[in-house]
Simulated scan of single mutants.
Amino acid sequence: MKVAFTSCMSVQVYPQQPVWDWIAAAQPDRLLLLGDSVYLDVEAPKPPRQMSNNEFAQHLHHRWSSQLAQKQFRALLAQLGPGRTHAIWDDHDFLWDNACGAAIRAQPPQSSKIPLSNAFFKAFRAALDAPDGFPVAYTDPVFWNPQEPAPATPSLQLEADLWLHLSDGRSWRTETTFVAQDKRQLLGAAQRNKFGKAIAANPQALHLFANGSTSKDWKNYPNDWEWLKAQAAQQRTLLLSGDVHHNDVDAFHTGGLPLHEVTSSGAAVRDAVVVGKKEQNHGMLEISADTVEIRLFHKNVEQSELRRELSRQSWLPVA
């Protein structure tokens, strides 16, 4: 099983996105998009906070449909076929930089933008299987349910002993400023309970846990960070993260099995989205019965210093 993964791309910044050609050439079995698949608050006609709901819906439609129309991306989706591309979101495709759903739901009129964003992201997810199925007009009724719930957070069985958990790190997230540590939530209790049950039900499996935020952010949310480490202590868990516009690997002591993390971010942006050096990054997991090989690429050149091979038995690096 080969799983390609990356995050952070913008057609407005880079109309040409060769990262998809490079991934296609490796012939992965799955593609995982780890958030910031569009940048709603970058090179926008005006800040999304200042948009009316009608303007915001037009903007959402343009951004999501533009990424789906990007030729290299579209070709990769066709190569993979239905059911092989999976996506989560992060702040820039949820609403704007550092947007936290728990806080914004208490801020009318901004809160009325959340159902719109939910609906457009769901339509994007569905169109990953059939890009021509994305609604052609922002006025389509599918986008305008004022009670549209947050996107689903499924646990997907990729193989008999391999699970992918697609989490939502934005809809229920609290801010950290002026919020006591024990009150902060990244996933929220309901999501933690749901994933905890799915992970516990498959104790011998390898669990890929997808979330846009890196461990550095998770540590600002002690309830969620300690929960994730507790899961990882008992079950082989690999945190797949994005957001930071570079590639990285890390590992953490849990008192049991280690928690491993791999980050790939910056598929088609610059260091600071529109300024700085060009980032064209992606990652690849090659999963066999015995090992998990982690490979990270910058401009399609492997970053050998970040390469890791983990034993699925010991869940430690292979010597």
Score class of each variant (00 low, 15 high):
267 A>H: 06
194 K>Q: 12
246 H>R: 10
260 H>M: 01
205 A>L: 08
277 K>E: 14
157 Q>K: 15
81 G>R: 02
119 A>L: 03
173 R>E: 11
151 P>H: 02
29 D>Y: 01
153 T>D: 01
247 N>W: 00
238 L>Q: 09
247 N>P: 06
42 V>M: 03
289 A>C: 00
79 Q>G: 13
162 L>Y: 07
113 K>F: 04
273 V>I: 15
174 T>Q: 04
156 L>A: 04
177 T>S: 14
160 A>H: 04
141 P>F: 09
92 H>S: 02
235 Q>M: 10
300 N>F: 05
169 G>Q: 10
255 G>D: 01
291 T>D: 14
55 E>T: 09
74 R>E: 01
169 G>A: 14
116 L>N: 03
309 E>T: 15
135 P>W: 01
37 S>Q: 14
235 Q>T: 13
233 A>R: 06
70 Q>H: 06
47 P>H: 15
71 K>W: 02
240 L>N: 07
228 L>W: 12
187 L>K: 08
261 E>M: 12
151 P>F: 06
29 D>R: 03
143 F>C: 04
228 L>V: 11
201 A>D: 15
176 T>A: 01
88 I>W: 00
169 G>R: 07
167 S>Y: 13
142 V>P: 00
123 A>P: 00
213 S>A: 14
180 A>K: 07
231 Q>E: 15
308 R>A: 11
281 N>F: 11
311 S>E: 04
312 R>A: 10
315 W>Y: 12
228 L>P: 06
182 D>Q: 12
229 K>S: 07
50 Q>S: 10
140 D>I: 00
52 S>V: 04
